[in-house]
Structure formats: C-alpha cells, structure tokens
C-alpha cells in the first residue's frame, strides 16, 4: 500500500509544482482586469497589449543580447576550465577550481554588490556590458558542471589515437574532442542562456539605466493594471521554454544516437 500512497503524494506534489504555471494562461485569457475568481470572459486583449508594448520589446531585446553573449562567453570559459580540470593534473587545481566554482555557493546579492562596488570604483559606466560580465561570472560554474560531465566521459585514448595517427593537438581537438562534447556544449549554452535571461538581482544592480526583461517585469508588478499583461507575458515565456527544452532534448537524443552512448537521463 506504500506504493499507492507515494504515488498519490507524487501527484499532489506535481499539482503544487504546476499550480502557479497553470494559472498563468487562466488569467492571461480572462477579460477581468483584477486577478481573481470568478473569471469574467475570454479575451486576447492582454496579448495585444503585450505585443504592442515597446518598452517591453526593448527590454526583451536587451535581455536577448545579454543572454546570448553570456551563453557564448560562459560556455567558452567553461570549455577551457572543464578541459583543464578533466585532462590535466597541476598543483593547486583544487583551489583554482574552487575559486572558479565559488559563484555557485555565493548568494547572488554578494556577487551583485561586490561587482557593483568594484565597477563604480574603477569608474566603468553601468550598461548591458556590465550585466554580461556579471552573468558570465554566475553562469560559468553551471557551464563547467555540465561540460565536466561531457569531457570526463571522453576516453583519453581517443585523442591519443588521433594524435598517433598524425593529427596535431589542435586538429585532434577539432576533429575528435569537439564533435564528441557537442551535446554538452549545447546543454551548457542553453543553461547559461536560461540563467542569464531569468536573472534579476545582478542585472538590477549592474544595468544602470538599461532595462532587461526581469527588471521590466519587476517594475510592472507594482501596478495592478499591468498584471493581466504580465500573465500573458508569462504564458508566452512558458510556451517558449517548453519549445526550447523539447528542441534541446531532441538534439541530445540525436547526439546519443550518433555516438551510440547510453542514455543517462535529462539535461540536469
């Protein structure tokens, strides 16, 4: 009987997890201006407001610029670090990796405030660029965690074999290592992208006069009039993330099929 009660609990837990998400479209299509039951009627007005909102468009564009840059930078830095930590032994490795992975266990407010203090001290103006610097710092440890798994599953004799067959170190990296860790690189890029796109407090501290999507959302949540539109925005974000995840999963499976590796589970 233990099995069925556990299953029941699992079901309730899923309800708890999904309740906030499921409520998004409910209110996004509700014509009432107040977010409350009972529902009034069906409307697409909030989506119309959403797509007509230029400030939001700008914030989204900024966020995408930041997220794409962060994704590229942190995955690149992650590839270096993951390669170094899985392939080479060197004195002080634990300490070096500890420093690089530190943002993982540092409250975001500490990262935000320390970066802010230093950027102001060196006189660097706050802009999208400074947000990219901060987000890259935060996303790199996650990228490394994902890439470490990809790199450590590489058989070292594969690269030795390529080297032995006449390739240089660089062409070995290009022809053998890179294709084999590509699924890891894609996951790492996606993860960094998502972390950056969703990050609020560091962006809030370092963006200066610029606006990102989370900063815009945070600013609008104070105005009850804007909430239905935010519900529509949330609905779009949920749909977008599901599409993104499904695509990622598709590529991961294809990568597995190509190399015949065993399926060891999802992205996290």
């Amino acid at each position: 009987m233990k099995f069925s009660s556990l299953k029941g609990y699992a079901f309730l837990y899923l309800v708890f997890l999904y309740a906030p998400i499921v409520l998004l479209p409910v209110f996004a299509f509700n014509s009432g201006t107040i977010i409350a039951f009972p529902l009034k009627g069906f409307t697409l007005d909030w989506f119309r407001d959403l797509f007509a909102n230029q400030t939001l468009g700008l914030a989204l564009k900024n966020s995408l610029i930041i997220a794409v840059s962060t994704s590229i930078l942190s995955t690149t830095l992650g590839v270096f670090a993951a390669r170094a930590s899985t392939r080479f032994k060197f004195p002080g490795k634990t300490g070096v990796m500890g420093l690089i992975m530190l943002p993982l266990v540092l409250p975001e407010i500490i990262i935000a405030s320390s970066l802010l203090v230093v950027l102001l001290a060196v006189g660097m103006p706050l802009s999208l660029f400074t947000v990219i610097l901060g987000h890259t710092l935060m996303a790199t440890p996650y990228a490394i965690a994902v890439l470490n798994a990809a790199f450590s599953s590489l058989d070292r004799s594969l690269e030795e074999a390529a080297y032995d067959l006449g390739e240089t170190k660089w062409s070995t990296f290009r022809l053998i290592i890179l294709p084999l860790v590509t699924p890891g690189i894609i996951s790492s890029a996606l993860m960094s992208f998502t972390i950056s796109l969703d990050e609020f407090i560091v962006a809030f501290s370092l963006a200066g006069k610029e606006t990102t999507l989370p900063i815009y959302i945070f600013s609008q949540l104070r105005f009850p009039k804007q909430i239905p539109m935010i519900m529509a925005l949330g609905t779009c974000l949920v749909v977008a993330s599901i599409v993104l995840l499904a695509t990622a999963e598709y590529f991961r499976r294809r990568g597995l099929a190509k190399t015949g590796a065993k399926d060891t589970g999802g992205f996290l």
Partner: peptide
C-alpha cells in the same frame, strides 16, 4: 602536464580573479 593545465585554465581563472576575487577583496 602542469604547464598545459595552467595554460588551459588561465582564461577562466583570470576572469574569476578579475571579476570575483578582486571584487570580493574590495568588498
């Protein structure tokens, strides 16, 4: 190996020193 390892880790390490260690020390 050690030299190769340091070369490989250096971009990430330098980034972490400039944007993490230095700010924390400043703080």
């Amino acid at each position: 190996e050690a030299v190769n390892g340091y070369m490989m880790i250096s971009p990430t390490l330098i980034y972490a020193i400039l944007l993490l260690a230095a700010p924390l020390v400043t703080l």
